[in-house]
């Protein structure tokens, strides 16, 4: 006879097999730290731009940044504007059902934006479609490699590349005379044939977009090794908060990250030892051992800044000269 008591006894016996808490606790500290670093890098390392050229990066970033709410929230943005006007240039006029625009990324090189990436996502699945417009030497190494076939995009020859090394992604690239190169990247479920159909249909639907957007944040001073490097800006959302992340990569792998938004402290809460710090109108905490700053402005904008633990003075100097710009216009989130 199997009664409730017997089942309870069985589960109690099962629970007695639980692993040793002390061992887990010891492992957890290191794992938490590694996870945080990886998350920061993936979330902020120019995800949008890489998303269009490296399928793995796109999937990884998207999983980590996607809020739990499957629907697009009403993001409380600002008036927009900034020091650099950016033509949107192109957009897809067809996307699968439920997809909407979720992020925009820019490569800023001097006073130019040679690359713009627009990411489209839908509710619950780990799927993303992106349109990359333009080219820049900093992302050439990330161009997709894999099984390639020649396709027709409205009369122009294009390359369809299927990447299978880690996860399946399909990319279609083409360029019409006098126009920038374009890449549509598709990381959706359903297998290779579905991805191919979606990629081709999206690519063939791409049309000029007369819209404009702006780069708001501006780096006033950078350390010598990062001073002339192109940098990346990613605009997106986390929950109902807007996010703007600035990333600058140095030649030796050194990376400056400035994550901004009304809810940054919730994205990057720290439990490490910290000390109070004030930089111009910013006030917040310095985590010296990690080379991180958590700052707040009077208008409610928060910033997470990371360089490295040996460069705290440089990090402070960067923020002394940093202009976060106006609150970005986020009315495009969820649009098509």
């Amino acid at each position: 006879m199997i009664d409730a008591e017997a089942i309870r006894d069985a589960f109690a016996a099962l629970a007695d097999e639980a692993p040793d808490a002390d061992r887990i606790r010891a492992a957890l500290a290191g794992r938490t730290r590694r996870h945080r670093q990886r998350r920061l890098v993936l979330r902020l390392a120019g995800a949008g731009t890489l998303a269009a050229t490296t399928g793995v990066a796109a999937a990884g970033v998207w999983r980590l940044t996607r809020p739990s709410d499957p629907d697009f929230p009403a993001v409380d943005g600002g008036p927009g504007g900034g020091w650099l006007e950016v033509p949107l240039r192109f957009r897809p006029t067809w996307l699968p059902h439920r997809y909407g625009e979720a992020a925009r990324s820019f490569i800023v090189d001097g006073g130019q934006v040679p690359v713009l990436s627009r990411e489209y996502q839908k509710g619950s699945a780990e799927e993303v479609i992106s349109l990359l417009i333009g080219q820049h030497e900093s992302i050439e190494a990330d161009r997709p490699n894999g099984e390639t076939s020649i396709v027709d995009i409205n009369g122009s020859p294009g390359r369809l590349v299927r990447v299978t090394d880690i996860g399946l992604a399909t990319h279609v690239s083409w360029q019409r005379p006098g126009e920038p190169p374009l890449i549509v990247s598709v990381l959706t479920a359903g297998g290779a044939d579905v991805q191919r159909d979606v990629a081709l249909r999206v690519a063939r639907s791409v049309r000029p977009d007369p819209g404009l957007t702006w780069v708001g944040p501006r780096l006033g001073w950078r350390p010598p090794d990062l001073a002339t490097a192109p940098w990346r800006l990613r605009q997106g959302f986390y929950g109902a908060d807007w996010t703007q992340d600035v990333t600058v990569d140095g030649a030796d792998g050194r990376q400056l990250i400035i994550g901004m938004g009304p809810g940054v402290s919730q994205r990057f809460e720290t439990t490490f030892a910290s000390e109070p710090i004030r930089i111009r109108e910013w006030s917040g905490l310095l985590i010296r051992e990690n080379g991180q700053l958590f700052l707040s402005q009077p208008d409610g904008v928060e910033a997470f800044v990371q360089l490295d633990s040996e460069s705290v003075d440089e990090m402070v100097q960067i923020m002394e000269a940093f202009d976060s710009g106006p609150w970005p216009d986020m009315s495009w989130v969820g649009g098509r």
Binding site: F11, L14, A15, D16, E17, A18, P19, A21, I24, R25
Partner: peptide
Amino acid sequence: LPALLRQATALAGDP
């Protein structure tokens, strides 16, 4: 943590 681990082991059926 000990309680969470016991709970998770029962729910997962596998330590």
